[in-house]
Simulated assay, not measured.
Amino acid sequence: MDFALTDEQRMLEETLTRLVADQVSPTQRRAMLDAPRQAPSTLWRTFAELGLLHMPFSEAVGGLGGDGTDLMIIMQALGRGLVPEAYLAGLVLPGQLLALTANSVQQTRWLAPLLEGEHQLALAWQEHGARYDAFAVSTQAIKHNAQWRLTGRKDVVLNLEAAAAYLVTARLESGKLGLFILPAGTPGLSLHLYRTMDDQAAGDLTLDDVTLPDENCLSEDVSEALADVLALGRAALCADAIGAMEEACDQTLAYLKDRKQFGLPLATFQALQHRMVDMHLHLEQSRSMAILACTSLSLPADERDYKIAAAKAYCGESARFIAEQAIQLHGGMGMTEECHVAHYAKHLVMFDHYLGDSDYHLETVSDQLSVA
């Protein structure tokens, strides 16, 4: 099978590589993280100018019609630079769900400005005790006349602080899963903001008898669309992890070549060479699994979910292995804030927990095999 990139995809890869190298150095990244959370940032506006915000969306909703490979190129470059922009959480996941569920009026109000870089959104789907199950939802939505009343809580909502609105899943009286869009500042909402271990902005969203007009309901049966979007997100995360694993391996190898012991570079010691080989083996096998995930998005749901779950589980285990090896080979300095590889290690550890950890996805694979 030919995995060679097209000329356009190579140009996209080269453009992104230069952009990340120029604008997201370790010092610049720290300044971005410390800056007040406001969208759009200068880098986000650059993304919009380059068409990166339109790329993963179909032409039917104003996008450029990019496929899984295009998304993989973008996410891999962002992962390699640890770019602190919510491209997946603030654009791709909520935007794709809007594209699948919103009517023309709702798309004009929320999706069109999202693709133009005028605002970001957030997808609130996780709940306490649900263990990554997007359909184990206790948040309730009750309709009375032409209004909806929502009560519940969503946990670990990425990009919560910068979002102009939140897409919230809730259980309807019919038993189906509904989807609602709540503008920031809606009465009855309360936010508890924090940073994840790898410095991503997140928070918990509490809904206390929130009242919404009927036009804020995007779907009264969002289960299939939500499954499609989460599958896309998991494939994109695998690509992001590949970029981070690449850079962690490169930085570790450069350190071993530079650091000397007994008058010799650490890279000359055979035991450490073996460990670097193991890191690269995990990286290359994970790369193959990430390609599998990103090229499986158009398959039937059962086959798609099986392959993406296998990829997410394998990449999660590899990410933890490479993170641990990178820290150990750097020694004590690998645990310091000043050592940039520590930030990659934290990101790779957290990658395993976003949209389901390795254990969760291995169960999915096991269930699919049992059915087969």
Results as ranks from 00 to 15, higher is better:
residue 70 D to G: 00
residue 68 G to K: 01
residue 82 L to E: 09
residue 79 G to W: 11
residue 78 L to F: 15
residue 55 M to S: 07
residue 91 L to F: 07
residue 63 G to A: 14
residue 65 G to F: 03
residue 81 G to M: 05
residue 92 V to A: 10
residue 67 D to W: 03
residue 74 I to Q: 14
residue 80 R to A: 14
residue 92 V to W: 05
residue 74 I to A: 15
residue 64 L to K: 14
residue 93 L to I: 13
residue 74 I to N: 00
residue 62 G to W: 09
residue 86 A to K: 05
residue 89 A to M: 14
residue 88 L to M: 08
residue 91 L to V: 15
residue 70 D to I: 01
residue 55 M to R: 15
residue 52 L to M: 10
residue 93 L to C: 08
residue 74 I to E: 05
residue 53 L to P: 00
residue 53 L to Y: 04
residue 80 R to P: 02
residue 86 A to W: 01
residue 62 G to C: 09
residue 67 D to H: 12
residue 80 R to S: 15
residue 91 L to C: 09
residue 93 L to K: 03
residue 93 L to E: 04
residue 83 V to S: 01
residue 93 L to N: 05
residue 76 Q to W: 02
residue 67 D to F: 04
residue 67 D to G: 15
residue 91 L to N: 09
residue 60 A to F: 08
residue 65 G to I: 02
residue 68 G to D: 10
residue 76 Q to K: 11
residue 94 P to V: 15
residue 85 E to F: 11
residue 89 A to T: 08
residue 51 G to E: 00
residue 92 V to L: 15
residue 61 V to R: 09
residue 69 T to N: 03
residue 51 G to A: 03
residue 60 A to I: 06
residue 89 A to F: 13
residue 79 G to T: 04
residue 57 F to T: 03
residue 61 V to G: 11
residue 75 M to T: 09
residue 84 P to H: 10
residue 62 G to N: 01
residue 75 M to E: 13
residue 87 Y to S: 01
residue 52 L to F: 01
residue 62 G to L: 07
